[in-house]
Structure formats: C-alpha cells, structure tokens
Design a protein around this nucleic acid. Structure first.
Lengths: 87, 87
DNA sequence: CACCATTTGTTCGTATGTATG
DNA sequence: GCATACATACGAACAAATGGT
C-alpha cells in the first residue's frame, strides 16, 4: 500500500465533493501521518491545523475526537495534543 | 458627518444582534476613534478594551488583527499596541 | 541578579447561529 | 428532521515578553 499511502499523504487537501465528511478525511490523514511516523510528539495546534487544511475549528476538533477515541492522541487544555506513545 | 460620527462614538457598545460580528464592530469603533484623533499613542490594554466593550479577549485580538492589517496600529508583545504615526 | 506586575500570545473547551444536503 | 460544516464568540488557563523594583 506504499504507493497509495504516499499519493494519499501528498494530497493533503480536503475534498468537499467526496462523499466522506471533511472531519473523517482529516482524521484519516492525521492517522496516516501518525502511523507512518511523519507526525510525532506534539501535534500542531487546532487553529494551525484548521488553517493548513482549510477547515473550521470545529471540524479539526471532530477529527481529533476520532483519534482520541482510537487512543492515538491525547489532548491537554491550554497545552495542545500529542501522539500517544505505544510500546 | 460630524454629528453621525459623534453619535456613533457615543454608542460605544457592541450590538450582538446586529448582523455585523462584534470584532468588526469593535474594529470600526477603534478605527473611528483613531482617525478622529480621539485615540493617540498607546492604546488601552487588550484586557481593558475587553472589559470596557464587554467582549472577550479573543474578540479584541481579532479586532486588533484587522487594524494591524490596515497598518493603523502596531503591537509589541509584553508592551502593548499603539497608533501608527503617519506622515 | 532575582522578583513581580502588566501585557500580549497561545491553546483547548464550549456554545450559538447560519447554511447546506 | 438530521448530520455536517463554517464563522463567530466567550471562557479559562497558561506561556512568553516587557519593564520596573
């Protein structure tokens, strides 16, 4: 799946026409970036993610909700979100 | 336009029911106060503005963002904002 | 140098109103 | 009606910079 992964991560834009909701697309993108090791430690701020992926604040929060539920990231108020270390 | 300006500045409250967002209203109010010469030199602190106009800190910051973009004010962290002198 | 108050900057949390499909 | 998204706003806490003591 290497090729599709790369091409997927390369298209770092949200497609508002594709059936999948933006927050799910963003969750998928971030999940891949985390699992591929591209994203480690502290994540960009929600506002920054919103700006970069050109979605609303609330949309980023919904995407992070998904990743939190999956145990991939943890969030601390006033500090930010970070990738959960897994042994 | 003297009368309307005065009456405008006299109504120094933010109308949360008017279609225009509070941060734009505040930007407009401050812009008028600056251009009329009512506001010179150092501006009140963001917290003070927030208290006086009864808006949130973030709303003041967004209003100042607008004025900064317009080149009307400059801001220094830990010091404050001031009206930009123009020749 | 340390300490402190003030001020701007950053961040997440939550809520509302509007619009679209 | 419902899910989704966006824009906006407010709140609360904390970090970082500044200036004075």
């Amino acid at each position: 799946v290497a090729y599709s992964l790369v091409s997927y991560l390369d298209r770092v834009t949200i497609d508002h026409e594709s059936g999948t909701p933006p927050y799910r697309q963003l969750a998928a993108i971030l999940r891949e970036r985390i699992e591929s090791g591209d994203l480690t430690g502290k994540l960009p701020a929600e506002k920054r993610l919103a700006d970069e992926y050109e979605v609303a604040h609330g949309t980023v929060r919904k995407a992070l909700d998904v990743l939190r539920d999956e145990g991939l990231v943890r969030t601390e108020p006033g500090w930010g979100s970070s990738v959960v270390e897994r042994g």
